[in-house]
Amino acid sequence: MSDFMYLFRGGMNQSSPEEMQKNMQKWMGWMKELSAKGHFKAGEPLEAGGRTLKGKNKVVTDGPFTESKDLVGGYLVVTAGSLDQATELAKGCPIFEYDGTVEVRPLMLMQQP
C-alpha cells in the first residue's frame, strides 16, 4: 500500500444554500466511504490567501490570490494499492459535479521501490 495526496481545486461555484448543503452532504458521503474502506489518512481544508515567500531575499508577498478555480482549497491523504486505484477512488469525489479538479500525487517514500 502507498500513500497519495489529493489536491482539490475549485468546485466552489456560488450557489444557493440548498445546493451548498447538498454539495456538502455528497462530500461527507464520499469521505465516509473512504474512511470505512480504510483509505482515509488525513485531510484539511485550506484558508484562501496566506503568504508566499520567494527568492534569495525571501521576499514575502500576500497571497496566492489566483482565481479560485486554480487555488488549492484543501487536501486529503489516502492509502491505496496503486496510483491507478487512487485515481479510481478520486473519481468518486463530488467536486466534479461542481466544476472542480482533483490532482492525485503519490507521496515519496524513504524505502527504495
Partner: peptide, 17 residues
C-alpha cells in the same frame, strides 16, 4: 451569510460536522 455558508461547506466537507 453566503460567506459563512461557503466556509461551513469548505470546512465541514473535509472535517465533518
Amino acid at each position: 451569510v453566503q460567506d459563512a455558508l461557503c466556509r461551513a461547506l469548505e470546512l465541514w466537507k473535509l472535517r465533518g460536522f
